[in-house]
């Protein structure tokens, strides 16, 4: 039978209210630093550099004093898919040239230096990204993040980017998720009490599956539109004008520490991206391990 409790599942990250140097940072700093690190990790294909990135992220996690088991939960949930991906990368990406040394070949399965390298880097990237994204949502509230994003995008207003409107959109979205979840629960119960068949799902007939969910989805959207209408009316009645000249309830203040952190992560990213990292096998070969 159906699980009618939607609200319980709707969490956007999990803010952990403790006091740590990371929590005290300005949200703008956290967003910028995380972006620098994510860009750095995304565009780096040297094993050694990725290991250093991972260590840096782990260090940040330790400083933030967030319980590591919360972070690891996301990792463990995704583990089955991760293993599947690694097996495929290991066996099937060996045909990508240049492949480097071939370790094993059987039929269409080929394990090469390239495929192993790809697998290792993917693993490190996944762990680092899981840590980073959890750290952002665990050390700052969604409100802080939205304000931070608004202020960061403000300079782009000159070229026509509606930064304030964008922040307002995000605020409205976050504000309405619980309301709509509640609404959805009510719709599901209402349809189930009328005998709607919500439990069985037909695998081979997508049209039937779609028609099955229409009694849920259409009222959900219609309710959402009606709520939007009410909100528009309320805002227009109060003569809401976005953008220029609005003052803010929350003022953000950057301290020296914030600037230092931004500068340090930026420099770190540049260093990691442009340093000519030697490949792991050549470093190991220098110490006499030439089996890799």
């Amino acid at each position: 039978m159906q699980n009618f409790e939607l609200l319980r599942n709707v969490t956007i990250g999990q803010y952990i209210p403790i006091d740590s140097p990371i929590h005290r940072l300005d949200p703008r700093t956290k967003i910028l630093a995380a972006t620098f690190l994510i860009v750095g990790i995304s565009f780096n294909s040297a094993v050694i550099a990725n290991v250093i990135f991972l260590l840096a992220v782990l260090a940040i996690a330790l400083i933030s004093r967030v319980p590591l088991k919360y972070v690891m939960r996301g990792f463990i949930l995704g583990l089955p898919i991760l293993i599947l991906i690694f097996v495929m990368q290991l066996f099937f990406q060996g045909w990508v040239e240049p492949s480097g040394r071939v370790y094993f070949e059987w039929g269409f399965i080929r394990v090469t230096r390239y495929s192993i390298q790809l697998m290792v880097i993917s693993l490190i990237r996944v762990v680092a990204f899981i840590f980073l994204t959890s750290l952002i949502t665990m050390t700052s509230t969604t409100t802080e993040l939205t304000h931070g994003m608004e202020r960061l995008l403000e300079p782009f207003r000159r070229i026509g980017l509606p930064s304030h409107e964008l922040a307002l959109v995000m605020m409205i979205a976050l504000r309405f998720v619980p309301t709509l979840a509640e609404e959805m629960e009510r719709i599901m119960k209402a349809q189930a009490s009328r005998g709607a068949d919500l439990g069985t799902r037909r695998m081979w007939r997508p049209d039937k599956a779609a028609k099955n969910i229409l009694p849920l989805i259409v009222p959900l959207f219609m309710n959402a539109f009606r709520r939007a209408e009410d909100l528009v009316l309320a805002m227009e009645a109060r003569c809401y004008v976005s953008g220029e000249g609005r003052t803010k309830y929350v003022e953000l203040h950057n301290s020296v520490v914030d600037y230092a952190v931004i500068a340090a992560t930026f420099a770190f990213m540049l260093l990691m991206m442009f340093y000519p990292w030697p490949s792991l096998h050549s470093v190991l070969a220098g110490y006499g391990f030439d089996w890799l």
């Binding site: 409205i172 309405f176 309301t179 805002m235």
Partner: peptide
């Protein structure tokens, strides 16, 4: 205003569909 609000609400629906199992069909 109207566009801001409708965009926000539709984003909320997208998040809701993702957060619950409603957005997935076998």
């Amino acid at each position: 205003v109207r566009r801001i609000v409708i965009t926000g609400i539709l984003a909320a629906v997208a998040i809701l569909l993702g957060a619950t199992r409603l957005g997935f069909l076998p």
